[in-house]
Design a protein around this nucleic acid. Structure first.
Lengths: 340, 340
DNA sequence: CTGAAAGCGCTTACAG
DNA sequence: CTGAAAGCGCTTACAG
């Protein structure tokens, strides 16, 4: 049965026969092997035939033969947080530009997703890893397996790893603080994230440094989970202090929603009684009551840069830290009052 | 170089040698081949050795040899919508229970994600497809490729496909309508989704049928995108009618947030002037102002059932429609006023 | 410079 | 019932 229509898979040999050349040539043409020297016309003919037949290399066969799988895996801590969708989108697009697919995994504790993630690697399904999951002490991090595969940490920094792709988290907090200071606020509080999440700590550190630099009190910090619930309880604790803050800066939009709730619950109003600024700029922010002023971060760029960084490792380059230098931007919406 | 430590991959032959048996036996034991007959003790020994050596079959080699890839692909229309994270989670978990991994793709129009999705199939990366992307006329749907691979439609129905895994969308709308009717509302409006999204149409049809059955007016329907913006403008149009609705039922939480915005903008209050019920129950709903009464849907079950359905096809069973019969549930929170 | 051939790591009829 | 062997579809040194 030489008829290509017999089975439904179109193979290398099918396009080779169609063109009257050998598999080797086709493989080399399709993979842009520079050591091959054929007439441009033949090259064209082969490409056209491949397209016409709908040839697509079997990923498994290719991987088995020693080539790359052309797949990357992306580990996300929480798919319910829409912020990650922007990182994911940035990564997908850049990956596609380079002919790679991205396999997404969510790292929920109960799921053994880290195991599944490792499986992807061991099973030879992916060439590299993008790790955006943030708990230190994660099983994955201590895995000896990790050392053998190209990977980067996205939106989190593993100290000394030399493969952190990061935004300017501390600068984001400083931007928010300076903005509030410019609006006349002197008692600025922060709803921070869990102490064991490294990016949360970085944003908190940036906040503390920024208020200190301005000579403002730095003890108005409360921590909570990255959720509405976490934000509500942390903000509640801040509001109950005496004297209370005139402005609250939240670490995530979810927390900000919770903070608004806590403020309302106490019969206070935004921005009349308390001003609010949130990290994370998403459409939702513009439709809350009041619309929230926020700090927009370069999330698409982050995802794209992370892909670039693994791809560079795959190309044999050394691992390196990457800093996304797009500066955090304040999006003004009306949740901040100018104090006299 | 017979030393397994030479390369870093542990192969079938490595565990075979360790146990003094052949590759065949190991492969059969590990894949639970029922036609194999070995002493339970040997079986144990092989399993233990595989575990100890950290053996993991090369997915590519396995796929190439004709076995399954043990991977499924899931196509989602919009990762920024947190509702999908619950479907995804349900699918991931069930897949893992069966030893499958799930590759996630987002179907944004500009991305050529449908191409990427098809690639996954053609390249032999996945055994089956879960399609939750909803536009009819999607390139993927008309692809002849689709016919050759096990797949199901999740949370959308392709008429006549015989492979729809669906919740009771019409019943959800009916539940909301009957609840509002029970609270004394007679002029009930609906913020519906885009006309070309089939699940949006189903919910709208359910709404229209339900209000008609109760003898209520059925013309209070406005459509908008599944976003805050879409909800705000659709709700605005409804509120500007004369006489206006006493209650608004929204198709998604994002739209409901937009509707709240539109209501506020007009100087009205929820639930004093207008009551609101939203499809989609997420933590966010409980932290809005006021907290939104919502219709909770069995999303985890939906994701899990979709996996079951493809797996059944993979096992050689016929494709079949699946209806998730968990009834939609009203979660009362305080955005609905009882009318006298 | 190109083609024939080996080999990647599996699974599975098939022969013993 | 089990083991030896073929073969899945590629890539890539290597021989010509």
């Amino acid at each position: 049965m030489d008829d290509p229509s017999a089975g439904d898979r179109v193979r290398l040999i099918d396009v080779a026969r169609r063109c009257g050349v050998t598999k080797s040539v086709v493989s080399r043409v399709l993979n842009d092997d520079p050591s091959l020297n054929v007439r441009p016309e033949t090259r064209q003919r082969i490409r056209a035939a491949a397209l016409e037949l709908g040839y697509r290399a079997h990923a498994g066969a290719r991987a088995l033969a020693g080539a790359e799988t052309r797949a990357l895996a992306l580990l996300i801590p929480d798919l319910a947080n829409p912020v990650y969708s922007r990182i994911i989108r940035g990564a997908y697009r850049r990956a596609r530009e380079h002919g790679y697919v991205v396999l997404l995994a969510e790292d929920t504790a109960d799921d053994g997703a880290d195991e599944a993630f490792a499986d992807l690697v061991e099973a030879g399904r992916v060439d590299g890893l993008l790790i955006a999951s943030a708990r230190p002490g994660h099983r994955l991090l201590s895995s000896a397996r990790l050392a053998r595969i190209p990977h980067v940490f996205v939106n989190r920094e593993v100290p000394g790893s030399g493969r952190n792709v990061a935004m300017e988290l501390a600068a984001a907090s400083a931007t928010a603080v300076r903005y509030l200071h410019g609006m006349g606020h002197r008692r600025i509080a922060m709803v921070s994230g869990p102490a064991d999440l490294q990016p949360a700590r970085l944003r908190e550190r940036g906040f503390v440094d920024a208020v200190r630099a301005l000579g403002l009190p730095s003890e108005l910090v409360a921590r909570g989970e990255f959720s509405e619930q976490g934000g509500a309880s942390a903000a509640g604790r801040l509001l109950d202090r005496e004297p209370g803050p005139t402005a609250v800066y939240c670490s995530t939009l979810g927390q900000a929603v919770g903070a608004l709730h806590a403020i309302r619950t106490r019969g206070l109003h935004v921005p009349a009684d308390v001003s609010v600024v949130t990290y994370d700029d998403l459409p939702l922010a513009g439709y809350l009551d009041p619309p929230l002023t926020s700090v927009a971060m370069p999330l698409l760029e982050l995802g794209a840069a992370a892909v670039d960084a693994v791809l560079q490792q795959l190309a044999g380059g050394p691992a390196a830290d990457v800093a996304i230098r797009v500066p955090p931007a304040i999006v003004e919406r009306g949740s901040v009052r100018r104090l006299p």
